[in-house]
Amino acid sequence: MTEPRYDVVAIGNAVVDVIASCEDELIEELELNRGGMTLVDEARADDLYRAMPPAREVSGGSAANTLAGISTLGLQCAFIGQVADDQLGKVFRHDMRATGIDFDTPARQGEPATGRVLIFVTPDGERTMNTFLGAGQYLPASALDESLIASGAILYLEGYLWDPEEPRKAMRRAIEVARGAGRKVAFTASESFVIERHGDDFRDLIDNGMIDILFVNESELATLTGEPSFEKGFEMIAPKVPCLVATRSEKGAVADAGGVRASVPAEPVAKVVDTTGAGDQFAAGFLCGFAHGEELEKCLRRGAIAAAEVISHYGPRPETDLQKLMAEKL
C-alpha cells in the first residue's frame, strides 16, 4: 500500500450557508421544521431568502465544514463536490482553497445554480435549515478523481448527499475505490430523514463491512436501529463497525472501537449561540485524533472541544485556532 497523500478526502454537498437570527414567531409563520433540515426547491429557497432577516453568507455543506475543521487542525485534505459555473460556485471554490483544502472538481455548466442552505437561528441557539441542493445533487461518478480518492487515508462521506441518485452512485463507486486501495471509509448519517429514506442502503453497507467509522447522533441511531433505547441501539450497531461514534448533545459522546468503549461529557460552553455545524466539527476533531492514532477517549475529547468552539458563535466553521485551543485543553 502506498503512503497516503491526504489525511482525509471527503465527498459532500457544495453549498453556501445563509445564516440569520430570528424569533420563534418567524419559524411558525413560515411553517418551518424547527430544529430540523428540510430539502426545498429553488422557488421555495428564493421565498425563504426574501423572508430572512439580515444574514451572513459563508461556504458550507456538512462534509466541507468538517474538512475546514480538519484543515485548521493541520491535516491535509481534499474535497469532491459539485458547484455550478456561477458566482456562488466561484465563492465556494475560493473559500475551500483559502482554507487549505484542495478542491478541483470541474464546475457544472448551466442550471441548476450552486446550492445553498438557509439557516434560521432562534434565541436558544437552535438552527432550522432549509436546503436547496442545486448543482450538488448532480455530482456524477464520472466527476470523481479516483486517484485522489485512493490517495486519502480516510474517505469521509456525507449522508445528506446519499439522497440524490447521481451522487449516491458516485459515493458507491468512491467506497469501492477507497476499499480497493486499502483506505478507511468514514460515514456520517447526517439526519434522521435521510435514514428514513435510505436506511436499507445504510444497514446494508454496515452489514457488509463497507464502513469503518460511523458517525450518528442519538436520534439518528434510534432511526437506524428502530430502538428507542440509546444503550440497546448502540449495542446493536457497535459490533458491526470497527468504530462507532455517537453524539448526544449536552450528554456528551460515546464511541466503541473493537469492543473498547469510551465516553466523554460535553465540553462546557458559556453560551450556546448557534448549533450549526456542531456535529460537523465534532467529526473534525475526532478524525484528527483518529488519523494520528490517538486513544478513543482523546479522539472524543478533540471532537467535544471542536463542537464547543463552533456552537459558541454564529457559523458552521471554527473561528479560533483549534490547534492552540486543543493544546490548552488536552
Rank of each mutant, 00 (worst) to 15 (best):
Y138A: 11
Y138T: 11
P140H: 14
P140V: 13
P140W: 12
A141D: 11
A141S: 14
A141W: 08
A141H: 08
S142V: 05
S142G: 07
A143N: 09
A143G: 03
A143L: 07
L144Q: 03
L144G: 05
D145K: 01
D145M: 02
D145N: 13
E146A: 12
E146P: 06
E146V: 09
E146T: 15
S147V: 07
S147Y: 04
L148N: 00
L148Y: 01
I149P: 00
I149D: 00
I149Y: 00
A150C: 13
S151Q: 14
S151K: 03
S151V: 06
G152T: 05
G152N: 05
A153E: 07
A153Q: 06
I154C: 05
I154E: 01
L155W: 03
Y156Q: 10
Y156P: 08
L157M: 07
L157W: 00
E158P: 02
E158H: 03
E158A: 03
G159K: 05
G159E: 09
G159L: 10
Y160R: 03
Y160T: 06
Y160W: 07
L161K: 03
L161H: 07
L161N: 02
W162V: 04
W162E: 02
D163T: 13
D163C: 07
D163A: 13
D163G: 06
D163R: 05
P164A: 04
E165W: 11
E166G: 02
E166L: 12
E166I: 00
P167Y: 03
R168V: 04
R168L: 06
K169A: 15
K169L: 12
M171C: 04
M171L: 12
M171E: 01
R172H: 15
R172Y: 10
R173Y: 03
A174W: 00
A174V: 01
A174Y: 00
A174G: 04
A174L: 00
A174D: 01
A174C: 06
I175H: 00
I175C: 00
I175K: 00
E176F: 07
E176R: 12
V177W: 01
V177H: 02
V177A: 02
A178E: 04
A178C: 12
A178M: 06
A178L: 05
G180P: 08
G180Q: 11
G180T: 11
G180M: 10
A181V: 11
A181S: 14
A181C: 10
G182V: 12
G182M: 11
G182W: 08
G182L: 10
G182C: 09
G182R: 07
R183P: 05
R183V: 08
K184R: 14
K184A: 10
V185M: 05
A186F: 08
A186P: 09
A186C: 11
F187H: 11
F187T: 12
F187G: 10
T188P: 02
T188E: 02
A189T: 15
A189Y: 05
A189C: 14
S190F: 04
S190D: 08
E191V: 13
E191G: 12
S192Q: 15
S192N: 09
S192I: 11
S192M: 11
F193M: 13
I195E: 04
I195M: 04
I195S: 06
E196C: 10
E196F: 13
H198Q: 14
H198E: 10
G199L: 04
D200I: 12
D200Y: 09
D200Q: 14
D200K: 14
D201P: 06
D201F: 15
D201E: 15
F202W: 05
R203Y: 13
D204V: 03
D204S: 15
